[in-house]
Nucleic acid binder design. Structure first.
Lengths: 303, 303
DNA sequence: CTGTTAGCGCATTCAG
DNA sequence: CTGAATGCGCTAACAG
């Protein structure tokens, strides 16, 4: 105890305590193209805040593909560099989830897994969220409602599509296959795709869109094509990024509270880490409520 | 060497090698309010990519204020948990910079320091960038050009203001004090502030705006007030976020290549870490070129 | 060239 | 209750 302000060597401390005081979060590459960028920074802020408050550090991990992601997180976990992991995104038959689950590593998934039901996770009910979005459009008098989807391998895409179908079925509305589009098409050639879409003999009068970013692109293409929102086409999308209220018209969107999802994921993980038994195999699914923010893009009548 | 696939304990390895193979990046809180969110995730992606390729891990650090940030990075560095740090944002008389510099820790600043000139840094020339933006507006025939600034304590705000003033002075154009506004005002009450602004007896016909996000807000307020962009007011802003080309009209913006800035910062830091002498006190300033992307918000004549 | 040992900086344990 | 020894898992220097 030489001088007063003395900082112990954390590495040595970690070695003896067999705990690192760190968690890693896997920053996905796949959804980078299709989902809003600000999406993840919000989650990360939430994770870092909570981890910091709990005395944990956060390591950002990533990989160009599923295999690289798995190897990165494996090195960290097996090398005892981190105590647990947070996955920000879930794919169908996700190799990273499988690795973490079968390896018995502590981890939390932000999203749903289609492989295991007994894992720690924080998620919004995407089926219900899409159902709500669709119901809202139906309540505004729409009967021909389309759906713009995200990458097929993401579970969130499938869930939202299901919620949309549920709402349509419940109201006995027809879903024309032509009405369901993958968002990627729009990013590649928004104008052309939208032109074709709006020329359908029986075109939709409203759209449920899987991410706000795509809505921005749609808005732009529609304006160029001379269509008006919401009069010619009403829009509701997901994630409620900061900018949706500044677009013209402002976009109706379902808020998922990304910061809180990150905060909660971190909380669940660290709590499980601190449990003596470390019974992470126990089922623990935390549902974060969503809420629809109605703005002009889905409301015809001006007040 | 029991089994074939064996992962050594990195903590023990680090302890003996006296090197951690990790760097930390300080995620600033201050600019969260005034600058685009997607801004930082881009930098982080660049940092993580380069660090990963160099065999380094990235720890995200943050704090609610300058002091907390300093303590967080201090704990990491003095506790030998990381080998160096990257600062994503520079304030005037920045306490974190001062701590790192006087402590002799390896670090790279993304941005300019007003305290030290002999530190590792990667930056865009914000003075020139703002000069270019202003010159562009002047070349479009504008003479009454205003400026919307960011937080005063950020060096980037001051530099851009200076570049704007330089261009105006060079062209012998007057800068009316009423024309220079702090962005925060607009976020608090965009409509009201903009209404007052446009009612000035001698109001500007063009604006240089410190961040794209503020431009979005301006666009919204102006539309509500019945003004047209670029006819009533032309706009150029900074950072060139993904969404500027999807707004209506698309916003002219100066691209700063955030991903590359992050990538470069990581590269400089890790290179200095690997140097035997670790002569980080050597001056090394990397300037990342910017470029103006002209879009409709600053061009009156339709082609 | 292969196998053994010392020590990295702590925390925990045991002895004084 | 305070102080010295042991070991965390690895790498390095060392001896066989």
């Amino acid at each position: 105890m030489e001088e007063m302000n003395f900082q112990p060597n954390l590495v040595a401390k970690n070695l003896v305590s067999k705990t690192t005081g760190s968690i890693c979060v896997v920053l996905p590459q796949i959804s980078e193209e299709s989902f809003s960028n600000s999406f993840y920074i919000e989650m990360i802020r939430g994770i870092v805040k909570q981890a910091r408050d709990s005395g944990y550090d956060v390591i950002i991990s990533s990989g160009a593909n599923e295999t690289e992601e798995k190897e990165a997180v494996s090195r960290l976990l097996r090398g005892r560099q981190v105590d647990g992991a947070i996955l920000l995104c879930s794919r169908k038959e996700d190799a990273v989830v499988e690795f973490l689950k079968t390896g018995g590593y502590p981890f939390v998934l932000v999203g749903r897994s289609n492989q295991y039901d007994d894992i720690l996770s924080v998620q919004t009910n995407n089926v219900t969220a899409a159902y709500d979005a669709t119901r809202h459009l139906i309540s505004m008098g729409h009967t021909r409602i389309g759906f713009i989807s995200g990458p097929r391998e993401l579970i969130v895409s499938a869930d939202r599509l299901e919620g949309y179908r549920n709402a349509m079925r419940e109201s006995e509305l027809r879903v024309c296959p032509d009405w369901v589009l993958e968002g990627q098409v729009l990013r590649d050639s928004g104008y052309r795709a939208m032109s074709a879409y709006m020329s359908l003999s029986e075109r939709p009068t409203a759209l449920v869109v899987v991410d706000d970013l795509i809505s921005f692109g749609l808005l732009r293409s529609l304006k160029e094509l001379g269509y008006r929102v919401p009069d010619d086409l009403a829009l509701v999308s997901f994630n409620n990024i900061q900018l949706v209220e500044l677009s013209s018209p402002p976009i109706s969107s379902i808020d998922m509270d990304m910061y809180f999802q990150g905060y909660t994921a971190s909380q669940i993980l660290i709590r499980s880490l601190k449990l003596p038994g470390n019974r992470s195999s126990e089922m623990h699914k935390q549902i974060v409520p969503h809420r629809l923010i109605v703005r002009e893009s889905s409301v015809k009548a001006r007040i």
